[in-house]
Design a protein around this nucleic acid. Structure first.
Lengths: 311, 311
DNA sequence: ACCGGTGATCGTTTTTCCTGATCGCGGTGC
DNA sequence: GCACCGCGATCAGGAAAAACGATCACCGGT
């Protein structure tokens, strides 16, 4: 007495074809199969539902009221299935670049680059890959890597290097890093700063989970400056405010400097000469996942967005 | 290079189960099948679409962006299929009487009874069988029978007898037929009329395709009245107007008389005594169709509606 | 370094499904 | 009135699909 059996696609398409053509034999030609096969499929469907769906007359068939209702639902099923089939590589209309499909890309991004780059990238993507919708989440470099492994993100945009195995990265661009300080700072009068001048200066950082902080630690070792870790901020703006009111110096990625520092008269940025100070931003995903089809267009969009942001 | 292959229900349910459980093996338990089978189904789906849908990791799987998108569409498919399965005889919620399903019943009805009975029946049906929606079309008795054979109607409500084979009827009720005439007519002074009084009187009729017309012809033969076929009307109201302004007599089914004649002071109805004058209204459908599940409730509703209309 | 758990793969068995021939039934033509 | 088509249902046989069971390679945790 148990009827948890679901109709099969064969049964549904058989029913639709028979009703459309009004004949089992014509429907057989349409579907490329014989009349007995269709008869069996429709018969099985009727038995499963326990209701006659077709009125078999001497010449041709006519759907019953139930048959019409079921056929309408069956058409919904076939449409939904077709929508999936259209996502194939020779996919239907609106295949942007190499047939990019409509997806929600969940990408994680460092807080020190996200707000200043992704709005541009998102705009570019809307044109080059209209089907791809970005869902952006910010985080620290290590946190993003963990989230990526756990499946929280599809890809992450962070600086290299990344901790742990199992990930594959594709560098997007290299971003110079400037020194940020108050306009009242003695070094602010210089156009550029050499490492030796930093001896004794205080270097401000964000929380220890930020990769930018590790870069600051390295700079401290090389230059004889001292590290201040009294305030663990979580945004570049917090760092900027500390620079504005105190004597400290902080590292500011170029994109952030262009976007925010220029409009704030209280702080200035100066390049460090004599020692390369920069970070490599890379798009990263799980090795097991394989290269996502969207990685290419996204990387391109990010590169273009960086150029736009610097203009 | 042809990819018109559609995903199968097995493939879609396999994908959904694997994503839901995050594991091929757990999904296998859920679907009551082995892990290799699921692996093959999902693998085939990925190959058909040409896109990886799952990120196979060492412990468990995670859907890719494509996988999430396809899974959402697959869920639509499964829901639509479930909607069909729920129409089974042990159907889902809202199974009124013996599990009547949501259908559009196309019923044809004689113009001489439809307007005066079906509004009541429709109201009753809304309570006894909420899922059944009536789509009523009027026509002549013969036209309705032809339309029924051609599949234009699911059932028809007409008077018996019906021309031609292949139909099966279920009588619903017997409706007395009255004589309708102007209040100025000499016979209007009588409470009841015997057939002999009709000698020489003019009997008005609708078009020849109406079964009521044939009944009038029979009355003419038996009583010595004369038939007037100068005006081929298509509604009972046309017949009433002719009675109101002229000397003719017409046949009026009881339901019509109760509904319309009482409120029109220009005409009256009188019973014919000494000779049975009535018609049998029956619900009819194609023999090949089998008795529709809704026939029973519909016939009951019509019978009740008739009593209501006569009250 | 071992061990437990994962998904992929292979050969075999089971199930499903399609074909081809045939039957009975109605309607159509001569 | 009778033979003739055309329709769908039915049956037996074979082909295709799908499942199983066993096994393998891989990775992470102990």
């Amino acid at each position: 007495m148990s009827y948890p059996v679901k109709p099969s696609l064969r049964q549904l398409s058989a029913l639709l074809a028979v009703i459309d053509t009004g004949s089992f034999r014509k429907a057989g030609v349409m579907l490329g199969m014989g009349q007995p096969a269709l008869s069996a499929q429709v018969g099985a469907l009727e038995e499963q539902l326990g209701v006659p769906l077709l009125d078999r007359r001497s010449h041709g068939v006519i759907p019953t009221a139930e048959g019409r209702a079921v056929a309408a639902l069956a058409q919904e099923v076939m449409d939904a299935v077709q929508r999936i089939a259209d996502r194939g590589r020779t996919g239907g209309p609106g295949a942007g670049k190499e047939g990019l499909r409509e997806v929600v890309l969940r990408i994680g991004v460092s807080a020190s680059v996200g707000p200043y780059l992704l709005p541009y990238a998102s705009t570019i993507l809307r044109q080059t890959a209209p089907g791809v919708q970005l869902l952006v989440r910010e985080g620290t470099t290590d946190g993003l890597a963990d989230g990526l492994r756990e499946g929280l993100h599809d890809m992450i945009l962070t600086q290299l290097p990344l901790r742990g195995p199992g990930l594959v990265s594709r560098p997007v661009f290299e971003e110079p890093i400037l020194l940020m300080m108050s306009v009242d700072h003695p070094l602010a009068t210089r156009e550029s700063i050499r490492p030796a001048m930093l001896k004794g200066e205080t270097i401000l950082t964000l929380g220890s989970a930020f990769a930018l902080t590790r870069q600051a630690e390295r700079l401290v070792e090389d230059s004889g400056a001292v590290l201040s870790n009294g305030y663990e901020g979580s945004s570049m703006d917090a760092l900027r405010m500390m620079c504005a009111v105190g004597p400290g110096i902080a590292l500011a990625p170029l994109l952030y400097a262009v976007s925010e520092v220029r409009s704030d008269g209280r702080v200035v940025t100066r390049p460090l000469v004599g020692k390369r100070l920069s970070r490599t931003l890379a798009l990263t995903w799980r090795k097991t996942q394989g290269t996502p089809p969207e990685a290419s267009v996204l990387a391109d969009a990010l590169a273009v967005a960086a150029q736009q942001a610097l203009r």
